[in-house]
């Protein structure tokens, strides 16, 4: 898939058209330099491996998650001034067409592409809506905290043709934990969403701090969001009629969206 912005940036490459180096002369120089270097001289120049979240022991994972979720909910609901105080880890599915009525009807473009709500999930006083159109999808976060509904924030990703094709995968991740900081909201939120096959009935997402939340799953899409700017753990727990299985978020990144 083309990524137009990156294509445009490619045209700014300051190294384009630069003279080639003399490969043979450089190799001779390297050979001469290598004779005098000691092996331990270079350890600090070797790239470090990425640190991975520590994988919890399977036996304790469920109990630990439950405790942490409970602690989070208690903290958020009893904290008074906490941001997104009513957020809960288990969403309530609400009718997408009704909930998404105040979200934009078009996205992407030009020209703008009509989008339809396909999934809406409520967590406390906020409703998150996924809208989909031809070659585009959109996230829309609505506040239902006051008497009047309003869109807290929205974002669209266009040019997604082909990226949503599940192939043999049970699910794909199209937003892998992207933080937003909406102006009228209560601070940053982090969203994770994707598409899923019909057999997937549940997706549980966990932050690297150990907070788990269940995604809402509907109409081939799933979504979850967390209060704050959080880092998402690589383990996703998928539920199908065969039971639960842990899969790698990284391994399910949808190709062509700039993530995979």
């Amino acid at each position: 898939m083309r990524r137009p912005l990156l294509d445009a940036v490619r045209g700014l490459d300051p190294a384009a058209g630069a003279p080639e180096i003399d490969g043979e002369a450089m190799l001779a120089r390297i050979r001469a330099s290598a004779q005098g270097a000691r092996k331990d001289d270079v350890a600090h120049l070797v790239p470090r491996r990425p640190s991975r979240p520590v994988r919890r022991l399977a036996v304790g994972a469920a109990a630990l998650s439950a405790v942490l979720v409970l602690a989070l909910v208690l903290t958020l609901t009893q904290g008074g001034g906490q941001a997104y105080a009513t957020w809960v880890a288990q969403p309530t599915l609400v009718p997408a067409e009704t909930a998404g009525a105040i979200c934009p009807e078009e996205a992407g473009g030009p020209p703008p592409i009509p989008v339809e709500p396909v999934l809406a999930e409520r967590r406390g006083e906020y409703t998150f809506v996924v809208l989909v159109g031809d070659n585009v999808f959109m996230e829309c976060l609505i506040s239902t905290a006051g008497e009047e509904l309003f869109v807290v924030t929205q974002a669209a990703e266009s040019g997604v043709e082909g990226a949503l094709d599940l192939g043999e995968a049970p699910a794909l991740v199209v937003v892998p934990g992207v933080p937003w900081d909406p102006d009228p909201g209560e601070g940053p939120v982090t969203t994770v969403m994707g598409v899923a096959s019909e057999e997937v009935t549940g997706v549980r997402v966990t932050t690297t701090d150990g907070v788990s939340a269940d995604a809402a799953v509907a109409d081939g899409w799933w979504s979850v969001w967390f209060p704050g700017e959080v880092e998402i753990d690589d383990d996703l727990l998928l539920t199908t009629p065969d039971g639960e299985s842990t899969v790698s978020l990284e391994g399910l990144l949808a190709p062509g969206l700039g993530y995979g």
Binding site: L5, P47, P50, E231, L249, L253, G258, Y259
Partner: peptide, 23 residues
């Protein structure tokens, strides 16, 4: 993305998020 993540010493998903935000 996987190679770029390795250059920076981060996971691919962490790199993907950084790229999303930078873009």
């Amino acid at each position: 993305n996987a190679e770029a993540a390795q250059v920076l010493g981060v996971t691919t998903s962490a790199y993907a998020v950084r790229l999303f935000r930078a873009r």
